[in-house]
Simulated assay, not measured.
Amino acid sequence: MSFDQKLKAFPSVRERYDAMGAAGEVDPDAAQRALADRLDRLIEELGQKRLSKKGSALGWLFGRKTANREPVKGLYIYGEVGRGKTMLMDLFYALAPVKRKRRAHFNDFMADVHERIHAHRQAFKRGETKQEDPIPPVADALAEAAWVLCFDEFTVTDITDAMILSRLFSALFERGVVLVATSNVQPDNLYRDGLNRQLFLPFIDILKRHVDVICLDSRTDYRLEKLNRQPVYVTPLGDAARRQMDVAWDAAKDGAEERTDILVVKGHKVAVPRAAGSAARFSFGDLCSKPLGASNYMAIVRRYHVIFIDDVPVLDYARRNEAKRFILLIDTLYDHHARLVVSAETTPDKLYLASSGTEAFEFERTASRLFEMQSTEYLEAVASGDPRAIQGVPG
């Protein structure tokens, strides 16, 4: 049964969640069930708002009378990685009775906002608009395109984002936009220790006035619990390896809808062929046969915490450029404490055949790290979220 068919068969988040539990797709959890019920209440409120305003087109979004109407409060759902936040928001988004809705990773949304602001400022310079302030027209355009916004992994690390969020979201909320977001941190800890954080604090107050804050405090990380039962380095390549990787991938997805994704890094696009929640799956060629560099790998590991790499081949001097990228990739994943699942032609210490050149020396470190990333100590440290527990391999 396809994802769409399942949604039709189980028309509420709770019904779909319970069906997934009965089918063994998720391990039923009281906190997740409670969140499913709360998402269903929000779906009901959105449906009532849509029906009550059906005859007024967009007027209720932009009219001054909006202030006199009872707004729909969104949800801000936070909790540790792997608690099921993304899976449940996927179900909510698919079932929300709203045509004009948008689901995006928060970083992608902000990249879009910055592009819109830049375009407006250029238009102002050319005399095409008399409106100097870009925030109101950008908010108008965003609200007209979608009055329900769903953000995955809501986080603020960029000072440029931090400086505009208060004004931008004040304008969006004034236009009736409803926000549903997942995050690993509670609102009060957003942009913690950030530069000029005092200028960001008004946004936190605005956010908490327009959303109900929910902590999804599941008793364990079910996704990693399932993934821990699977091998994390599969060799040799072949049908058996592909089957093992697929089983591990299903465990990492933990019911989240699979999709393709695009990361924009310094104006360049990096394709993510398979993504689900905070897990992403690539082939070796996707990551190492293309001209990718450190900034690309950094963007990937910041977005995704569990990385799958299929079909790592044995490399030699003729493929040293691919070897260099693989070395850089593993260094980046290791330094950021990512969970790595790999299928490879042979064991880490036999992946690079050349005995000369700097790559041969550097690959010794890569092989060592690949072995360590399979260790119980590394996996437990990743699951605990405490990077200090990971004992690094010297240089």
Rank of each mutant, 00 (worst) to 15 (best):
E128W: 10
A123R: 08
V98P: 12
D152C: 04
E44H: 06
F10R: 09
S166I: 00
N189S: 10
S384E: 07
P28N: 02
D286F: 01
T235W: 00
K53M: 01
F151N: 12
V232F: 01
I77D: 14
F200M: 02
A104G: 03
I117V: 15
E115M: 07
G79N: 00
A94R: 00
I309E: 07
V213G: 10
L227T: 04
V26I: 15
A19Y: 12
L329H: 13
V234P: 13
T235Y: 04
E25P: 00
C215D: 13
K269N: 11
K49F: 06
A275N: 13
A248Y: 00
A360T: 10
G385A: 10
P273H: 07
R14W: 09
V185H: 07
A96Y: 09
G277N: 05
P231N: 05
T86I: 04
V342K: 10
N321W: 04
P137S: 07
A280Q: 05
A251C: 11
E115F: 05
C150P: 11
R69T: 12
L172Y: 12
P136H: 06
D188F: 05
P313N: 07
R167M: 04
H114N: 03
Y76G: 01
T160I: 07
Q186R: 14
R319T: 14
A354G: 06
R167I: 03
V264W: 12
H336D: 12
T366Y: 08
F284Q: 05
Y191D: 01
M20Y: 13
G21Y: 08
V26C: 09
D221Q: 01
Q5F: 01
R365C: 07
F361P: 05
T129C: 05
V180C: 09
E258S: 11
I262Q: 14
G21V: 07
R126W: 09
